[in-house]
Every structure is written in structure tokens, then in C-alpha cells.
């Protein structure tokens, strides 16, 4: 048992350093989306919620598990969707042009559409 807790502590320490390192240079415009994105990632608690509910015995444990899963699902689904919605707004000029082209040229031959997309990426 002490071996497995030490393994987890190792993981904890390394993940902690990684968490610091990986976001060390974030422009302030991305602070809100980053907060929201990390918020979605701790929604991984849903995995824990499923495990405790799936092994529950008796109605009290089941009810508690049910509530836990609802909360955890809210966290993970809402977190990712709201972050995606924020990031939808961060488009470069060319991405926007591509999108506008796609909207207005719905009926045009596919070649034009794909070339516009190509420009968007470049």
C-alpha cells in the first residue's frame, strides 16, 4: 500500500510542476479562456463519480452517487462548451474571411470553396 501511495505522490509532484511549466507564458487575453478550460479539465472528477456510483450499495449511496454524477457532468460538459464558445471568438482575419466566404458562397463550385479554405490556413 505504501508503494502505491508513493507512486501517486510522485505523479502528484510531477503533474504539479508540469501545470506550472506548461502555462508559464499566457497572454492576458487568454486568461479567461484558460481558467474556463482548466475548469473543464477538473471535470475529470466524473470518472471518480462513476466509480463510486457503480460500486454503490443501498439507496443512500446510490442517491449520493446520482447527485455526484449530475454535478460532475455539469462541470465537465458545461466547462468544455463554455470554453469553446469563448474561443470561437478568437479568430484570425483570414479564418473570418474563410467563414464569410463559406456563408455567402454556399452554392458555388467546390474548387473555389477549397481554395478559400487553403488561404485561410496559410
Amino acid at each position: 500500500m505504501t508503494g502505491s501511495i508513493l507512486n501517486l505522490i510522485t505523479v502528484f509532484v510531477l503533474a504539479g510542476f508540469l501545470g506550472f511549466e506548461v502555462i508559464s507564458k499566457v497572454p492576458s487575453i487568454l486568461h479567461t479562456p484558460l481558467m474556463s478550460g482548466t475548469n473543464a479539465i477538473h471535470g475529470v472528477i466524473l470518472v471518480g463519480a462513476i466509480i463510486v456510483t457503480g460500486t454503490a450499495h443501498g439507496n443512500a449511496q446510490l442517491a449520493l452517487g446520482f447527485a455526484t454524477i449530475v454535478l460532475a457532468t455539469l462541470n465537465v460538459v458545461g466547462g468544455f462548451v463554455v470554453t469553446d464558445r469563448m474561443l470561437e471568438m478568437f479568430k484570425t482575419k483570414s479564418q473570418r474571411a474563410t467563414e464569410a466566404a463559406r456563408h455567402t458562397d454556399a452554392g458555388i463550385p467546390p474548387e473555389t470553396g477549397s481554395s478559400a479554405r487553403g488561404q485561410g490556413k496559410g
Binding site: 501517486l8 503533474a15 501545470g19 482548466t38 479539465i41 470518472v47 471518480g48
Partner: peptide, 24 residues
């Protein structure tokens, strides 16, 4: 909770957010 359940993915996910959230 990851420690409680011996779940590495919970420990990694939670700790990443704990650390990056503190920095943020």
C-alpha cells in the same frame, strides 16, 4: 479524490488544474 480512489487520471487532471490555476 484521486488519492482516495487510487486513480492516476484524477490525480493528474486535478493537480494540473491545481498548479496552473494557482499560477493563473
Amino acid at each position: 479524490s484521486g488519492f482516495v480512489l487510487h486513480s492516476t487520471v484524477l490525480v493528474v487532471g486535478g493537480t494540473l488544474v491545481g498548479a496552473s490555476g494557482a499560477l493563473l
